[in-house]
């Protein structure tokens, strides 16, 4: 299978602080990768570098076979824009547009950025909302929805651009445990459909049950990566064992 993401020697520092040191990993098409690790390990920064929200300081990144960051630096603006449209990001705190209805939150980018016909974009948005179990909320405003519903809208919004790889930045951290389940169910469904996903999460059970591969990060490096059964079962790393001890019980 083709690699949807190829990351080699990725580096990022904020001033003196090296947040990412030599990160290397690939993600195959249809693979679901969970990134776990303690706070401050660089997980979110990694995601932000892969989605161009932060500029990395070194290394190379290819997205969907298209080099994004090469040894010579970042590609031109136009190419970066094209790459970005192939990637979606679901934020921890949703970041829905509060002044737009749910439907318009989803149709705005397709109609404005991709110049999709309005009726077509709306039909697609309704389809996505149905999939998220939110067909009745098309005309509601984000402030009228629960956190879990808002997050599902934001997933629909990302999907409306038909991304080839979807990133999640702690998608359930702002939700109470009851609502967390809704989001995890949606992600499971996407995984079953073959969506390539990279999920930064604190939900260990979720990482274990849904991910094809788990990456454990700490201090800006990948300590270990492998199948969930490997990390959760018998990790080679004492640090990983220790981190997961509380969860494994």
């Amino acid at each position: 299978m083709a690699n949807m993401l190829e990351v080699k020697g990725l580096q990022k520092s904020f001033g003196e602080l090296d947040v990412l040191k030599d990160i290397t990993f690939d993600v195959a098409q249809g693979e679901v990768v969970a990134v776990i690790g303690p706070s401050g390990s660089g997980k979110s920064t990694l995601l932000r570098c892969l989605t161009q929200l932060e500029r990395a300081d070194g290394g190379t990144v290819s997205v969907c076979g298209e080099p994004m960051l090469t040894a010579e630096g970042y590609r031109d603006t136009k190419t970066l824009h094209q790459i970005r449209l192939k990637t979606g990001l679901v934020f921890q705190n949703f970041n829905l547009f509060p002044h737009m209805s749910v439907l318009r939150n989803i149709t705005e980018a397709p109609t404005v950025v991709l110049k999709t016909d309005k009726a077509q974009a709306q039909a697609r948005a309704k389809e996505l909302l149905k999939k998220m179990g939110l067909e009745a909320k098309a005309d509601a405003y984000p402030c009228e929805l629960s956190g879990g519903q808002q997050q599902r809208v934001s997933i629909a919004r990302a999907l409306a651009l038909s991304p080839e790889i979807l990133f999640f930045d702690e998608p359930t951290s702002a939700l109470d445990p009851e609502l967390t389940g809704e989001i995890l169910a949606v992600i499971k469904e996407l995984a079953a459909e073959g969506m390539t996903m990279v999920i930064v999460t604190h939900e260990m059970a979720f990482a274990r049950d849904v991910a094809d591969r788990v990456i454990f990060m700490e201090h800006g490096v990948i300590v270990e990566q492998g199948a969930p059964s490997q990390l959760f079962g018998d990790s080679a790393s004492d640090r990983v064992k220790q981190f997961l001890a509380r969860f494994n019980g």
Partner: peptide
Amino acid sequence: GQYEAAAMLGFTRLQ
């Protein structure tokens, strides 16, 4: 986050 969400959806700075 509003700027970041917009950027991820491919909006230009003016849009």
